[in-house]
């Protein structure tokens, strides 16, 4: 088991190196002179030359890359032009907001999608099945920012159930003491139920938006792989040996069907992290996505680059977790490692 995890870790390393190379190349692909770009629009020729030397842009490309990598190793992602703050600090401060939102969205969608997919697969042609099919096809067609806006219109403007889509907490509340950085958990740790409720109210709509978005691929894959497994030879053997439907579906079919679903989770994460940016913009969520969007509009490249790198590193880590999870379910992977 440990050997498998170590092996997976080793596999993740080339991915990380690839990520660093690509983000580095993206910086160098900047149109025009990066030094002039980083020096700002009002800089003189001298100032630009200074910046160029400071950034090491007068060095050959491999040297520049080594320097870039060394900066990264020290946790230095550069400085934002607009705020003057180090990018790494900003991202660290904003990351919990994004993580809390994304995780809650994912949990909601898995809790709905997996049982839905299983129900649809065990009763093909039933109402649940049709509902599942419509929902999955419609779900992947919904632009996530559009879903968010509709939810805001219905639950905030029309019904007044939800608070204004402006950030993590209503202005009348103060943030709980940061332990995990997740407001829900921190407020529970501080035993502050009022804040918990307020944080949850803010979180619910954006999380739901993400959930609706990621529901479709998970439910679709669960249904398809459940159908395939239920039609397989070993399920027929289990049935021919008189095992109860519960044992057949849960012990025999479900675990096997989860393998492709776990793999799909990787793709879902990719979508979720991207959709996160759009949802944060709709709900004015102070996460790393809206940080990047603000920087993009201001043509401030260092935060964008830091953001892309952070997201990619996160995604590589998530894929690692998925691989390990897969190994836990499937002995074939575990033993061959």
């Amino acid at each position: 088991m440990l050997a498998m995890i170590l092996k997976r870790l080793l596999v993740a390393i080339p991915s990380l190196i690839g990520v660093v190379i690509i983000t580095f190349l993206l910086t160098r692909a900047l149109p025009g002179d990066p030094a002039a770009y980083f020096a700002g629009p009002a800089a003189t020729q001298e100032a630009i030359a200074q910046v160029r030397a400071k950034l090491g842009l007068d060095q050959p490309l491999p040297t520049q890359f080594m320097r870039y990598a060394a900066d990264l190793a020290r946790g230095d992602l550069g400085t934002s032009l607009t705020t003057g703050q180090p990018v790494a600090t900003e991202i660290r401060n904003r990351l919990p907001a994004s993580a809390e939102l994304t995780l809650l969205g994912l949990i909601i969608s898995v809790l709905i999608a997996v049982p839905l997919g299983i129900l649809a697969a065990t009763r093909p042609g039933s109402l649940v099945d049709h509902a599942c099919r419509v929902l999955t096809t419609a779900g992947v067609s919904l632009p996530v920012f559009f879903t968010g806006l509709i939810l805001v219109y219905v639950f905030y403007y029309l019904l007044g159930f939800a608070p204004a889509p402006l950030g993590r907490l209503d202005v009348f509340f103060s943030a709980p003491e940061a332990i995990t950085g997740f407001y829900l958990l921190d407020s529970l740790i501080a035993r502050d139920l009022e804040t918990f409720r307020a944080a949850l109210a803010q979180l619910l709509l954006p999380a739901l938006t993400l959930a609706i978005f990621s529901l479709a691929p998970i439910a679709r894959m669960t249904r398809a792989s459940m159908l395939a497994v239920l039609a397989s030879d070993f399920v027929r053997t289990a049935r021919a040996n008189g095992l109860t439907p519960f044992t057949v579906v849960v012990t025999y079919a479900f675990r096997n069907a989860m393998l492709p679903v776990v793999t799909t989770l990787g793709m879902v994460f990719s979508f979720l992290l991207g959709a996160n940016v759009l949802v944060e913009k709709v709900f004015a969520w102070p996460g790393i996505g809206s940080y990047a969007v603000e920087a993009l509009i201001a043509s401030d490249f260092a935060p964008v680059q830091g953001f892309v790198l952070t997201m990619a590193a996160l995604y590589v880590a998530l894929n690692l977790v998925i691989d390990i999870l897969y190994g836990l379910i499937d002995p074939r992977v575990r033993i061959e490692a």
């Binding site: 030879d233 070993f234 049935r239 021919a240 040996n241 008189g242 095992l243 109860t244 379910i329």
Partner: peptide
């Protein structure tokens, strides 16, 4: 029927490898 299957009548299949649960 479920009580009968496996206890009173049972079956073996072509392609034995596929007839067994691969991860149990």
């Amino acid at each position: 029927m479920r009580d009968l299957r496996g206890r009173e009548m049972s079956m073996i299949f072509q392609n034995p490898r596929a007839a067994l649960n691969p991860i149990r």
